[in-house]
């Protein structure tokens, strides 16, 4: 990983989407946390999807980093969902005795966005025009 490399953060409507590929290092994780928190701070964010389909090996460092990002996001009022974890990676994490605790999981990116939309705190009736009916 070079000094200039950053994990891109995509904003789609009111969600942030991060796709993690390959390996994460200390610096990259700190950078990602900063980038996500500042993106949330800029406003208009309700959900965060961390897509893990590009990760074939996930050690405790990466899982902890993802969990931390999820926790930080939640403290800032944003729900985090992981998506697309490889089956063997899930099996390994469980065998190690690790989980992602508060971070919910979805089968894929689409399901993750679906989940965020569904569970999002409903806007008050009569405001914003997105209410029922």
């Amino acid at each position: 990983m070079t000094e200039t490399f950053r994990i891109p953060i995509i904003k789609l409507k009111d969600n942030l989407i991060v796709s993690i590929q390959g390996s994460l290092g200390d610096r990259l994780v700190i950078q990602l946390k900063e980038d996500i928190t500042s993106a949330i701070e800029r406003g208009g964010v309700r959900g965060l999807v961390i897509d893990l389909s590009g990760i074939d090996v996930m050690d405790s460092f990466i899982s902890r980093a993802i969990r931390d990002i999820g926790l930080v996001a939640r403290l800032m009022g944003v729900r985090a969902v992981i998506s697309g974890m490889e089956p063997m990676v899930a099996m390994t994490l469980v065998e190690m005795g690790m989980g992602l605790e508060s971070v919910k999981a979805a089968l894929n990116l689409e399901a993750a966005l679906d989940m965020l939309a569904r569970d999002a705190p409903r806007p008050l009736e009569g405001f914003g025009g997105k209410g029922r009916g």
Partner: peptide, 14 residues
């Protein structure tokens, strides 16, 4: 605080 404990225990479990 940096996750080493889990890492070693996890490795032993694997």
């Amino acid at each position: 605080t940096r996750g080493m404990g889990m890492g070693l225990v996890g490795t032993r479990n694997l």
